[in-house]
Design a protein around this nucleic acid. Sequence first.
DNA 1: GCAAACCACTCTTGTTATGCAACTGGTTGT
DNA 2: ACAACCAGTTGCATAACAAGAGTGGTTTGC
Lengths: 168, 168
Amino acid sequence: MTEPQRSGCPINLTLEVVGDKWSLLIIRDMMFGNHRHFRELLTKSEEGISSNILADRLKTLLDHGIVSWADDPSHKQKGIYSLTEQGIELLPVLAQMSGWGFKYLDVTEELGIRAKLLSEGGPKMWAEFMDELRETHLGAKRKRKAGPSVGERLQAAYQKVMARKGKS
Amino acid sequence: MTEPQRSGCPINLTLEVVGDKWSLLIIRDMMFGNHRHFRELLTKSEEGISSNILADRLKTLLDHGIVSWADDPSHKQKGIYSLTEQGIELLPVLAQMSGWGFKYLDVTEELGIRAKLLSEGGPKMWAEFMDELRETHLGAKRKRKAGPSVGERLQAAYQKVMARKGKS
DNA sequence: GCAAACCACTCTTGTTATGCAACTGGTTGT
DNA sequence: ACAACCAGTTGCATAACAAGAGTGGTTTGC
């Protein structure tokens, strides 16, 4: 748990916090899948993280103030993980990575559709989605916009592709 | 060198390519420091990468088409590494990470100034900088804009901070 | 023409991180 | 009361990473 800090460069420091193969995937699942419990994050992710790695990453994300933790009042054992403002502001990073991956890598259609929409929507859509995340994760009040939310639109698009491919 | 590919999600795939602690730093040095030779990348970086890791990462970046390699005509032993279009398009990812790190982490003033300017400049400045990179790395012609380039402005700001701090 | 410095790496040898599977101690539902 | 669920922890094997020395060659300076 010693972090010797290699340099004061912002890119380097960011990599030291979330520059591993799992942290950003956990944050992705919290953002786009609304996974908030340990068990959800463990079993519902595409990639199959193992429980010790998940526990370790959640701990460091907590330490860095990217996620927060609270008791679930409905279940004595359950805790709820939430994104903090700092965590929510990682969305543009994820969006850019997602757009780049969609353009250059071998992305499957059903998992790429969100990337496509988010990339086409641009910073304006990202800001709107971040506002929605502030509502669900921070309990912030939000001025309701007309029509379905960004989260709903992304989810609907995903379902549509899955339906067309006959996968449920 | 086997990559079992955990899922077809664009974010995951991007992380599998550049989601380690060094790849993006190498790309950063190529972009912002114009480091193009092995030795430059090895010795001029803030963080002190070791030579075997650098060799390994350059190899995988070559494999993925993010950088390219060519003989240096002026020196039989030297090769020149260049960013490809695909590599240049990682700039927005770096810019977002840089902006986030600048806002939330303990960035030093001289290394943060570029992040600040790039963040304030927004996507428009990034596009301009990417055009400059296409010129230096791909040999693309570019319609000259008036005034100093983005690269020059970033460098000048860095020098100014260093001078004020009496560090050379 | 020759030594010293430079060049792009590779090799060897640890250390650290990752990943799987089993297990713990507790809670909830029926 | 008992099975299923919950949030992790522990032990151990394997893979990735890292520091430093070494390799075979080239260029520079004198």
